[in-house]
Amino acid sequence: MEISDRDFDEKVLSSEKPVLLEYWASWCPPCHTIKKVLKKLDGEDTWFRVVTINVDRNLGYASKYSVKGVPCFMIFKQGELIHREVGARSEKQIRAMLNEHI
C-alpha cells in the first residue's frame, strides 16, 4: 500500500500491527523491482502491514528519519522505529528481516 506523509501517522505510527515500510524513489531501479515482492507480502494478510512511501514526494518524515538512500526498509512496532537497513533485498532477506525483528 502506497502512503504519504499525510497518512503516515495513521498507517505507520498508530498501526496496531507492526509495519514494514519501504522508502522508494522513481529513479531507483532496485525500488521498482522490489515492488512486486512487497505487493506479494502485503497480500498475505498476515500479522504485519507493508507500506511504501516515495522519498521525494514526502520529505517530512523522510527528513525526520534522515533517509539518505533508497530503498530504505524500516520496521515500526507500536509507533517506534525498531530497525532500518538500506539497499536492495531479496524476498528471502526481507522475510528474514521480518522474522528477526517482529
Partner: peptide, 22 residues
Amino acid sequence: GLFPADAVLTWRGQEWSMGGEL
C-alpha cells in the same frame, strides 16, 4: 535489462540482492 528482485549473488557463503542492477 535489470535483474529481478529475487536475483541473488552468492559468494563466500554470503548473499546479496542483485534486484534492479543492470
